[in-house]
């Protein structure tokens, strides 16, 4: 098998899922953002977005901070260093394979 094609099989499956790829790509371009922004940009409903974020948090790629702005609860999200490295690796692998 062509090693470049084979590398597609080694893509990080946590990031490779389309919904999670959108989330990680958006988070990689910023320091932090909130749940509402991700919902607005990705068009996902709350349940789906929460599910993807939980998976990314389990993998150690995203850190989630629940805080308040005045009396309004706010969920802040950011990529961890591991998440940034994993995304960069994912991009390199995909670029190389395609």
């Amino acid at each position: 098998m062509n090693p470049l094609i084979q590398s597609i099989g080694e893509l990080d499956r946590v990031i490779h899922e389309p919904g999670r790829l959108m989330i990680v790509a958006l988070l990689s371009a910023v320091e932090r953002t909130d749940f509402l922004y991700l919902q607005h940009e990705t068009g996902m409903n709350k349940g789906t977005l929460s599910s993807h974020l939980s998976r990314l948090e389990e993998a150690g790629y995203v850190e989630i901070e629940k805080t308040y702005r005045g009396k309004v609860p706010r969920t802040l999200l950011g990529l961890t260093q591991a998440g940034r490295s994993a995304f960069e690796q994912y991009r390199r692998t995909l670029k190389g394979a395609l």
Binding site: A29, V30, E31, R32, T33, D34, F35, L36, Y37, L38, Q39, H40, E41, V72, R74, L76
Partner: peptide
Amino acid sequence: TYPRTGFVAYRK
């Protein structure tokens, strides 16, 4: 803006 479409903090 932030209450309508969300908050973003950009990287330094």
